[in-house]
Design a binder for these strands. Structure first.
Lengths: 203, 203
DNA sequence: CCCCCATGTTTACAGCGACAACATGACTCG
DNA sequence: CGAGTCATGTTGTCGCTGTAAACATGGGGG
């Protein structure tokens, strides 16, 4: 998916001058996020890698933050996709929810900079309060798994609480691990997640 | 506590040249953290406020990060103190643990920049794995409340799981709120925290 | 065919963290 | 009491950053 060219695209040139600079910058940014935190990525470094002057970036993004926001969106989408896939692969229901949670933490561990960025510069729209089909792809997996798991008769407020509960737990786990406050032990993560499934705790 | 002088201290001069520059910088940093995130605080701005040249800071901190780390430590200590106080005021036990958790989230909401900084540049020592009396003051409150609440017969691993569970939940809640992913509703926070108390969920 | 405008470049500026060389003044010791 | 040392603070500088303004260019639509 991410071609490895550091210079300008040649084949996929659908743009005008050079190539798809916007896309190239995003690919470069994601690549750099594998090696360093977002705050260490300079606009100029990305431009350099793209083989382009620093100010060319401003033709595609109003400022550095906007570029990072684009990377953040990509991160959210990847996370959401993995969660949905994991939930489906586990057959949905309780196992699906647990799998979705494990995937959430795993993603954070595997892509710390991207995970951090995804939330740090996320749009301030409260994902939990959006209707499911607009809730970005980020929380779709978790919320769908929870919705499926809860007794349909439950009032919406209880559903919301359950979703918040599950989300907070995995998010807290992820952040504490990333910040080095606790070690990453998959078995432990799994235990803690299972203990929180709706049904073990009252909604 | 934080005197409001922007120039050099006069009365509390226990230092040599000007005053207690190190202390002044920390006070200034905490003040600035009330108004902006840590990454927006420049070493030069702090020096300016202290009425001192930029490089004077390097006499007291090896670099900017070290100064921020000092602020982070202060944040951790404040948070820990508040938690212990809240737990004690609630009479310990289950109510104490819930109070400690509520205080954790509240602190984050009230001091977003300081809270973030406290974890972002925390020493990478896994607080949860330290003996209680060395565990900094950060997690003391939570862990003491949990220890008190759990049946003494429980094996240490179960205690650890319970602590991690509680900590993850409140930390996740706090971060999601700070990142604007969910709104801050004290009642909701309280509900979610109560649902996680050891005893509602199996350890 | 030509011109327009999206895309990219050059130049410039202020602010940043950090290093090296220098100044100063408070405390110590003879 | 006088000298000198060393912690503390200053000046000057460097390379880097984000970003604004003015200029260049070339591909596609009139």
């Amino acid at each position: 998916m991410t071609r490895k060219d550091n210079s300008v695209n040649i084949e996929s040139r659908r743009g005008y001058h050079h190539g798809d600079l916007r896309g190239a910058l995003i690919a470069i940014g994601l690549e750099m996020l594998d090696a360093m935190p977002a705050e260490a990525i300079s606009l100029r470094a990305m431009a350099r890698r793209a083989g382009v002057s620093a100010t060319a970036v401003y033709r595609h993004f109003p400022n550095r933050q906007a570029l990072l926001a684009a990377l953040a969106r990509e991160g959210m989408e990847r996370l959401g996709g993995l969660q949905r896939a994991a939930s489906a692969a586990a057959g949905g229901g309780g196992p699906g929810l647990a799998a979705s949670g494990r995937t959430y933490v795993r993603f954070a561990v595997d892509n710390p900079a991207l995970f951090r960025l995804a939330f740090a510069s996320a749009p301030a729209t409260a994902l939990l309060d959006l209707p499911l089909d607009e809730a970005g792809s980020a929380m779709r997996g978790l919320r769908e798994a929870i919705a499926e798991l809860l007794p349909p008769a439950l009032p919406p407020a209880a559903r919301r609480d359950a979703a918040l509960h599950a989300w907070s737990l995995v998010h807290g786990l992820a952040m504490l691990i990333l910040d080095g406050q606790v070690g990453y032990d998959p078995a432990e993560v799994d235990r803690v997640i299972r203990a929180t499934l709706p049904g073990s705790a009252a909604g």
